[in-house]
């Protein structure tokens, strides 16, 4: 089963993503900040990481760097309320950049897209 790590400090959002993604058939882990996420990545093998940017302790950008420095191949989607970083996301080497909204369809489609691309390139 495809295993996804959701990193999000907003508790209600995180819980809901987990529910929705489980409904989609994914195995979902949760982390409330970048630091926890980096720890989880060390001990678990994830097929995909969904990263918020603004979080306490360690923000998403720092976490992105740390996760990629451990495992360059792990697919990562930035999912944030900031819309103004979108044009710069390529420099962060995340696979995709999705702006938060009340509609999760965009995120779900991106997850599928990213996973398909990865499996094709393998």
């Amino acid at each position: 089963m495809t295993k996804i790590l959701v990193v999000e400090d907003e508790q209600y959002q995180r819980e809901l993503y987990a529910l929705e993604l489980k409904d989609e058939g994914y195995d979902v882990d949760q982390a409330a900040n970048g630091k926890d996420a980096v720890e989880l990545v060390k001990t678990n093998k994830y097929d995909l990481v969904i990263l918020d940017i603004r979080m306490p302790e360690m923000d998403g950008i720092e976490a992105l760097g740390k996760i990629l420095s451990r495992d360059k191949k792990i697919p990562i989607i930035i999912y944030t309320a900031y819309s103004n970083y979108k044009s710069n996301f390529m420099t962060w080497t995340a696979d995709a950049y999705v702006t938060k909204s009340s509609n999760l369809d965009e995120l779900k489609n991106k997850i599928k897209e990213v996973l398909e691309n990865r499996s094709k390139s393998k």
Partner: peptide, 12 residues
């Protein structure tokens, strides 16, 4: 956007 997104998600 954060609270709006949360609200929208839960309303849905």
């Amino acid at each position: 956007r954060n609270p709006l997104a949360t609200m929208g998600l839960y309303a849905k």
